[in-house]
Nucleic acid binder design. Structure first.
Length: 117
DNA sequence: GGTGTGACCAGCT
DNA sequence: AAGCTGGCCACAC
């Protein structure tokens, strides 16, 4: 009912940022999980888009904790360094091999299950 | 204002 | 079994 003082509606992006920032240490989630939490399964692409905008976000967004459904570091190329994402994940205890999180299933963090519930 | 793209996912062939 | 296409919504030109 009120128009936001800022141009456009960054609600979607902000929502994604909030969820990503809520990811605990040593955990990872997938784009689809966040999209599903937001209420749209098909909006998974928007989540990835939001990550791209995370660089414009005033607060640091642990985008390295967000990977695709297969646990593959598809967006590693979008970081300052392509190895930065893997380094961060490994630094948090995740086992990354061949650009893929081996124990992704173990560290998987579902917002709809942790927060939504 | 329309078109294209995009760090995806799921279904169909 | 694997590969391709469609679909979804928001942003940039």
């Amino acid at each position: 009912m009120d128009k936001p003082p800022v141009k456009g509606d960054y609600n979607f992006f902000d929502n994604v940022f909030e969820v990503v920032k809520l990811i605990p240490y040593g955990r990872a989630t997938s784009y689809g999980a966040i999209a599903n939490y937001l209420g749209s399964r098909g909006s998974a692409r928007m989540v990835g888009w939001a990550m791209n905008a995370s660089h414009h976000s005033p607060d640091p967004v642990p985008a390295h904790r967000v990977v695709n459904r297969n646990g593959m570091l598809t967006g590693k190329h979008h970081f300052c360094s392509p190895d930065l994402m893997q380094q961060l994940l490994e630094s948090e205890g995740a086992i990354v091999e061949n650009d893929r999180i081996v124990n992704f299933r173990e560290i998987f963090w579902d917002p709809a299950r942790e927060i939504g519930f």
